[in-house]
Every structure is written in C-alpha cells, then in structure tokens.
C-alpha cells in the first residue's frame, strides 16, 4: 500500500529525515517510536503533503501512485488520513458541517452520489457511538475549546467518518487518561480490516497494549534504525533510547 524509499527531508536548512525506508501492506499496523524531535511528525506531514519543507527527495508510492505529485486534498480523497498531534481549532464551523463538507468532496472525487441529509445524519450518529462521542460535542465548533482528550476523540471520530485506507495516528495517546485511551483505541481497533493499514506514531509503549502492532520501528537520527515485533516496544520502554545506539540494525 505504501512504499517509502530513501526519503530525505529538510526544513530551514536542517536535514530531519536522512534516508528513511518503510513498507506498509494492507491489513498491517505499524508503530513508529522514537524520542522527541526525531522527525515522526515530519514523516506524517510529508506523507500527507504538508508544504513547508525546503527539500524532499526519495520516493513515496501509495497504491502504485507517486504521492509527491499529488495535492494534499487528493491524497486525503485517496484514503490517507492523519490524526493530528495538535488538532487546530476552526471557530464557527460545527463538526457536523465540517464532516459533511469533507465527505461530499470525497464522494464527488470518487464519482459517488453524495449522501442525502438524512443518510448523512444516520451515518454520523452511527460513527459517533464508535468513539462514545456525545451529541453536545458533535454540535460544537471543530476543536474550539476542546480539552486535549476531546480533541483526540474528535480526530478518531473523523477517521471513522472518512474511513481511510491508510490512517496515520500522530501521538493520539498523548494527553489521554486511561479511560479515554481505551475508548480511542477501541475505536481504532473496530475500524481495522484486512484492507486498511494504520501507522501509529507514539513514544510510549502504553498505547500499543491496546492497539497491537504487527511491526514496531524505531526512528532515530532521521532513519529507521531498528524494526521488530511488538516485543520491541517493551524492550525500548525498559532500556530507553540510549540502548538503541548499540543495537541498531543499521549504522548510525
């Protein structure tokens, strides 16, 4: 589904990603771990098309298409979804209207007939239950005055609404108490199928108790330096990132 080869990314003259490789197949869950500031969000941004980097080289192929050539909105319409680390507020725009607009655009792009008002509401209410979203929250403006946990819930709710093929969850666990974490993780798990894939970015092992990954990658110094199964997450948690330096699969 996603093939990243030798990805280099720099911002303001500083190289952040230095030859990153990653391959994700349908049905898989990949966790990307690494200390703060290593470029995990940068990777998510580059996949989704954020246009703030001065230099990007390498290859990102998604469903056989060159992503670098695609506009941000087209990547989204092709099924790439990002659960933001810091979701932004859009005052005055209700979540309902926001999702309606987004869904209509995606349907239009795919040549499908947009949902009628009634169909949309039914669908909307179904998905709301998935993340135990209250009616009150759904009527509020997008992220405006939301607590950290509410913001993350709202991201997963939107993910449920848009039903992506490739979901990237950027630190979706940060700022969540244990109950919220469970709800959010449950939502993500229910959305898993053999057709879609998830990339979970986190620097705590905790989330991976709930969303069990097939692969764990350690991002360090701009590259994926170690890949393993879910037990790698425990090892990391226990031994810290210093340990990686001596046990990397590739030269640092």
């Amino acid at each position: 589904m996603l093939e990243i080869k030798d990805l280099h990314v720099s911002i303001q003259g500083k190289e952040i990603l230095k030859g990153l490789n990653l391959s994700v197949k349908p049905g898989e869950v990949h966790a990307i771990m690494g200390p703060n500031g290593t470029g995990k969000s940068t990777l998510a941004n580059v996949i989704t098309g954020r246009d703030i980097y001065d230099n990007i080289s390498g290859e990102i192929i998604y469903k056989g298409k060159d992503l670098m050539e695609m506009a941000i909105e087209d990547r989204a319409r092709e099924g790439i979804f990002l659960s933001f680390q810091y979701p932004v507020e859009i005052p005055g725009v209700s979540i309902t209207n926001f999702m309606r607009a987004a869904l209509d655009e995606i349907y239009l792009y795919k040549g499908k007939k947009p949902l009628s008002g009634g169909e949309f509401l039914k669908y909307f209410n179904e998905k709301k239950q998935l993340v135990e979203m209250t009616a009150n929250l759904a009527n509020r403006s997008v992220n405006e005055g939301f607590s950290g946990g509410e913001k993350k819930k709202n991201e997963i709710f939107q993910m449920a609404m848009l039903n992506p093929d490739l979901a990237i969850l950027d630190e979706t666990d940060s700022g969540l108490d244990i109950d919220a974490l469970r709800i959010v993780a449950n939502g993500v798990n229910k959305l898993r199928t053999s057709e879609n894939a998830t990339i979970v970015i986190t620097h705590y092992q905790r989330l991976l108790d709930y969303i069990v990954p097939d692969f764990v990658h350690v991002l360090y110094g701009g590259k994926i330096v170690k890949t393993g199964g879910k037990e790698l997450a425990f090892e990391l948690e226990e031994k810290g990132y210093e340990w990686i330096k001596d046990h990397a699969d590739i030269e640092l």
């Binding site: 506009a71 909105e73 990002l82 005052p91 725009v93």
Partner: peptide, 22 residues
C-alpha cells in the same frame, strides 16, 4: 487541517470564513 480532510484550498477558505462570520 481542512485540506487533509479532502477540501481544496478555496473550499477550505470558504468554510473557515463562514465559520468566522457565523
């Protein structure tokens, strides 16, 4: 954020502006 949800630039602006004027 809007574009990542599938809206193009103009539609994103339309949405944000309408929210501002709500």
């Amino acid at each position: 954020y809007c574009q990542q949800r599938g809206l193009d630039t103009e539609k994103s602006i339309g949405l944000i502006v309408n929210g501002y004027a709500r």
